[in-house]
Design a protein around this nucleic acid. Structure first.
Length: 519
RNA sequence: CGGGGCGUAGCGCAGCUUGGCUAGCGCGCUUGGUUCGGGACCAAGAGGUCGCGGGUUCAAAUCCCGCCGCCCCGACCA
């Protein structure tokens, strides 16, 4: 689907830089044209605009329902973490030390008409703005857990966190971001491990069946593991440029935090034991994943299940008489679609050409557009236009545009919207899967590896790996690639199964891992 | 923190090299009219501490010094 850029320059209001020209610029253009977010005046922080936030709200709803269905409840913990608390778990503190915002004062003062920090108001103990909440939560759990009857404790919170990143990108990495973080306590290692995997499945289910983004479930290597965790599980997606994106993580924390916060419980045998913990999260980064998986050179493409608006209706008329009739019919169509539980928008703005409206709603990713004009009233039909169709090789832009559009008898059209949305939802996942398959390769030697990643069409390399942390760094330096994950056994395609030898060291390897460039 | 770039109307920019009329252009915005099945047109308008602070000069968006902010590339990361 390589659309021609219009004669107008990219990054004006009216066009998007084609992906083939500059993928990074395309990404920014899509966000701008779809009106999802913008840079704020605060370094590294973004403003999520209503349309972008609406997508996040849909994600929240879907995820929250799944968390509740697996027995979790929501709560809220403070934004501030006393420095001494953060420092309790050594590895954890070390992992986040370089990216913490710290509050040191609690008052401002006006001096010579200038507002400054009052030096008199220095805090006795600095407060760290949470980069994640393990420490404050485990400090709190200490008071909640006494016996095995208090377990498991299954709590989630929706919150913002701050990580003072050096380089930021809208949605993918910002200094402040929104996320959910689950923190659970269990009586046994087995239960905690089960929880870690259960949540991973929830994430994968959400990614594939709601966001229509195929993911691979796996373990992180020790180098990429969450600071303080014994094991980090993740879901990894592939973006349209072949790069990997970590879309969610689920950590098995063992007894690390229980020990550092001294959280013990009395088991059935009357013995005191440290509890076992998990934590897990997904963030607004998912919006970035959505953009980079489905969208095209016309702007945003959304899976219907996450589209804030399912159907936009554009009325067409030449004079007041036509306008009255068309709007009357449009009103009826809106009502009938809403009665089906669909989110419908009637775009009755005046003084705007219909074509301009089409482009705008396409850029915003609305899955279906219905055009209603005098001719439709005559024929008793509706013009139904899909946001995308699956590509046919060699097809011209004109032909594809025709294929997106159909004229359908009115009632049939209205009844057909839901099935159409289901079809589109399914097609997006299929298309993304096919893309990932095309851009994945089983690779056996370093030479092969090198030539694979020298190619622009590189993606996921399935390789045997038995290297150390340092050797991973070496691969990163040479090829800009990292081990994205050590896939779970059932995630490995047939052609990549089996044992072998490490592509770097030649040492025996039990299974293949995924190496790729990553965001 | 290192390298690069940029700050002029809501957005995108020109002007700066070589100081000089009232600081311009495109988009957007407002009003009126004609349009309306893939990005309309005409006319009339509104909108500016030229990032901030000093300095040089008769005169600074333009030259000099200092500061601030943002973006891009690298080291850190969801």
């Amino acid at each position: 689907m390589s659309q021609q850029p219009t004669a107008k320059t990219a990054s004006t209001e009216t066009s998007v830089t084609p992906r083939a020209t500059d993928y990074a610029q395309w990404y920014l253009d899509v966000i701008k044209r779809a009106d999802l977010a913008e840079h704020s005046s605060v370094r590294g922080c973004m403003v999520i605009k209503p349309h972008g936030y609406a997508i996040w709200e849909k994600m929240q709803r879907e995820l929250d329902d799944r968390f509740k269905a697996t027995g979790h409840v929501n709560a809220y913990f403070p934004l501030f973490i006393p420095l001494s608390l953060l420092a309790k778990e050594e590895q954890h503190a070390a992992g986040f030390a370089k990216e913490c915002a710290v509050v040191t004062h609690h008052r401002l003062k006006s001096i010579d008409g200038k507002v400054v920090v009052d030096p008199e108001s220095k805090l006795e103990e600095p407060l760290v703005i949470r980069p994640t909440s393990e420490t404050i939560i485990w400090d709190t759990y200490k008071g909640w857990i006494q016996s095995y009857r208090d377990l498991p404790l299954l709590i989630n919170q929706w919150a913002n966190v701050v990580r003072w990143e050096m380089r930021t990108r809208l949605f993918l990495r910002t200094a402040e971001f929104l996320w959910q973080e689950g923190h659970t306590a269990h009586a046994t290692e087995k239960e905690a491990l089960e929880e870690t995997y259960r949540i991973l499945d929830v994430y994968a289910d959400f990614a594939e069946n709601v966001a229509a983004v195929p993911v691979i479930k796996g373990h992180k290597t020790s180098g990429e593991r969450f600071a303080g965790a014994l094991d980090t599980l993740c879901i990894e997606g592939m973006m349209q440029d072949g790069k990997a994106l970590q879309m969610g993580t689920s950590h098995y924390l063992g007894q690390n935090f229980a020990k550092s916060s001294d959280v013990m419980f009395l088991n059935k045998d009357g013995q005191r034991e440290y509890v076992y913990a998990t934590s897990w999260g997904v963030s607004t980064r998912l919006v970035g994943a959505l953009i980079m998986t489905h969208s095209d050179d016309n702007g945003l493409v959304l899976p219907p299940k996450l589209a804030p608006i399912h159907v936009v209706i554009v009325p067409i008329f030449k004079n007041d008489a036509e306008k009255a009739k068309v709007l009357e019919e449009a009103g009826k169509v809106v009502a009938e679609l809403k009665a089906q539980g669909l989110a419908v928008k009637l775009d009755d703005r005046e003084g705007m050409m219909p074509g301009a409206k089409y482009y705008e709603w396409e850029a915003k990713g609305v899955p279906v557009r219905i055009e209603i004009g005098p001719k439709d009233l005559e024929k008793g039909s509706l013009c139904v236009v899909r946001r995308f169709v699956l590509e046919v090789p060699g097809e011209t832009e004109q032909d594809q545009r025709k294929r997106k559009k159909s004229f359908v008898p009115r009632n049939e059209a209205i009844a057909g919207i839901k099935p159409l949305l289901d079809t589109m939802q399914r097609e997006l996942l299929e298309r993304a899967r096919a893309f990932r398959t095309k851009r994945s390769a089983v690779i056996n030697t370093l030479a092969e590896f090198e030539s694979y990643f020298a190619n622009k069409d590189a993606g996921f390399a399935w390789v045997h790996w038995a290297g150390t942390h340092e050797q991973e760094d070496e691969m990163a330096k040479r090829f800009e690639t990292t081990v994205r994950c050590i896939p779970l056994p059932d995630q490995i395609p047939a052609e990549a199964k089996g044992t072998g030898t490490c592509i770097l060291t030649g040492q025996p390897s039990q299974q293949r891992v995924i190496m790729a460039r990553a965001y």
